[in-house]
Amino acid sequence: MIGTATVYGLCASGLVAIGLYGLVLHPTPLRKVIAFNLLGSGTFVLFGVAARRGGAAGFLADPVPQAMVITGIVVAFASTALAVALLLRLQETGASSIETTPPEQQDNGAS
């Protein structure tokens, strides 16, 4: 018999495959970062499946994997932020490889 947890387990497997596919094949870094986030989400849902199945002792779901997922989501956000900063900087430095290229100032409004 298939239970709720199993349905989401299959969802997790699907997300992992889709995310990994995009991560390997997309040529541009931004798309890779988005795919990485899908892959990460799939991994987290896998923890969620373990949590839901482990509901016991008055808890609807095992709190330990839930806490791990919360930690994981924050770490994934930090990774995304660093990756985005890197790829924006890559664009700013342009094709030139001179060390002191002044990057274009993105905003020319407020002083």
Binding site: L23, P29, K32, F36, L39, G40, T43, S79, L82, A83, L86, L87, R89, L90, T93, G94, A95, S96, S97, E99
Partner: peptide, 21 residues
Amino acid sequence: GRRETVQAALRYLLFALIGSV
């Protein structure tokens, strides 16, 4: 902050993230 090193850092980050996942 040179372009090549930023590129290397980005590639390093992506490999490291795949490894982590």
